[in-house]
Amino acid sequence: MNNFITKLPLVVFVILVASLFIFLKNDNQELNSVLIDKEFPEFNLSSLDKSKVLTKNDLEELPFIINIWATWCITCRVEHPFLMELKNNPDITVYGINYKDDRREALNLLDRTGNPFKFSIFDPEGRLAIDLGVYGAPETFLIGKDGLIKVRHTGALTPEVWEEKFTEYID
């Protein structure tokens, strides 16, 4: 007992240093989404091609990923080829949210480089984005077979990220 008490400060100190080290390694840049295992938020926005008004009911093919993109977003162009690849994956549907963008420029870009999305929701004021806790582009959410949000990824969606975070929710 005696021994323990005199060594207590040392023990506490070591624990403190160890935990600080662990938290230092923790990458804080990526905020954990509070929306994991929650329902996708309701919305009422026009489609990017203006053809119809979209609501949550239009996101009907589960499981799906929804990608927040914009023409001003450079990283979005990095992940674009991989999204085109996913378009051909029969196990997943790819939807888009065109985030704070110009409608014509966005449609132009899709014409030029190819459209990976079944459709894009046009969100010029970032209203749906706020409901999703989005703070930049690109971001990608995966909604599982039960209709709940399973994954939130900020930054470019690469094959490595896909393997690591997304595939476990897909058949």
């Binding site: 840049q29 905020l31 704070k100 004021e125 970032g126 984005a129 706020i130 806790g133 703070y135 930049g136």
Partner: peptide
């Protein structure tokens, strides 16, 4: 501000801060 980590909405001019 969710984008700039150590700034308040008040002190930030990033687009997301404006939206918020």
């Amino acid at each position: 501000c969710p984008k700039c980590q150590s700034s308040s909405l008040d002190g930030s001019n990033s687009p997301i801060s404006k939206d918020l």
